[in-house]
Design a protein around this nucleic acid. Sequence first.
DNA 1: ACTTAAATTCATCACATGATGAGTTCCAGT
DNA 2: ACTGGAACTCATCATGTGATGAATTTAAGT
Lengths: 198, 198
Amino acid sequence: MTGAPRAGTAGRGRRPGPTETREAILAEAREMFADKGYDGTSLRAIARAAGVDPALVHHFFGTKEGVFVEAMRFPVDPSVVLPRLLSLPRERLGEAIVRTFLQVWGDADRRAPLLAMLRSAMTNERAAAMMREFVTSALLGRAGAAGGDVPHLNIQAAVGQMIGVMILRYVLRVEPMASAGEEELVALVAPTLQRYLD
Amino acid sequence: MTGAPRAGTAGRGRRPGPTETREAILAEAREMFADKGYDGTSLRAIARAAGVDPALVHHFFGTKEGVFVEAMRFPVDPSVVLPRLLSLPRERLGEAIVRTFLQVWGDADRRAPLLAMLRSAMTNERAAAMMREFVTSALLGRAGAAGGDVPHLNIQAAVGQMIGVMILRYVLRVEPMASAGEEELVALVAPTLQRYLD
DNA sequence: ACTTAAATTCATCACATGATGAGTTCCAGT
DNA sequence: ACTGGAACTCATCATGTGATGAATTTAAGT
């Protein structure tokens, strides 16, 4: 017997076969950041969840912020979605936006990075800066460039409405907001957006 | 010379004169909780800010949660404000609510506990529970009891709108929302609330 | 004046955190 | 077959965390 490494207690060194550990770590990281925010998530907890030594996380991503940045691949590209929305007939804009939000947030995988961003931005200045930047340049910038005559303040009121609803629905999970149906919510808040953006 | 304690390096034991340290600690705590949320604020940081030994914080409040609870004396009593709002003529409700929000949040001292609550609720389950409870029983309960025929979902949409705006204004501090005037905001979002609550 | 209680610090505990450097095992290109 | 690098763990550091118990000084109650 040539002292083959025990199966259960995989020791040191590279594992045989192809490796997908990096992706596994990222997946766990996304989930934990979404759940606890940047500051509330520890490298070691991520490593533990991925069944891996903390140093490996470091090996792949260098620093905690490195993990965060990689984990934040946005699940919705504004440069794709916004033009599509803006090309719609004006009177259907409100409804289309609400539907888009509900669809993206309704899917756990696409919701995770958004939740992570939102949670982290509340207590971490760096994350807040990212989100501020997103709101101002990705949204306001593009909407303005598209021949928009809508005041920035109005756009932000609309963004605020959506952020608030998402918080009540997915962070605080208050009823009945948490389990309201898509149609119900569209009927309720689409007119609000419509009014802001007219 | 009777080895009188040096003035600068106050040593052990009680300080002469009347004592207001407890309040000082609470004040710093409120500020830090508002700034960083529950998890982001450390007992030691509070103590440092108050110029006091960490153990003293413990002496007064027992545990970190104890500090939080004491620091969260709500600066607005729903059982006072809500009836006043609800007794107004229906068509001025939206405006009155927006004005109330802006007033309370405009004052740094009254804003602090609210910000603390909001920030903490995003990452801390216990704080989230407090806030959920607040939304459901303090708001929905009371509004329902006052002969309100407004669906809960509508009320929550209104709450969401206000939460979202406050986040953009006071947490992310995006412009122009951050420095918009009271009248401007009233004109913008009062009609939204009015529609939800009609 | 004496005694109890409150206010305050000091010295610790046990534990979690992010980071680093070195060692081991395997894969891929030659 | 050899070798460079990638994957992976271990041991360890310095620091920060919430909590506790004892010691000291002052204020209040009698």
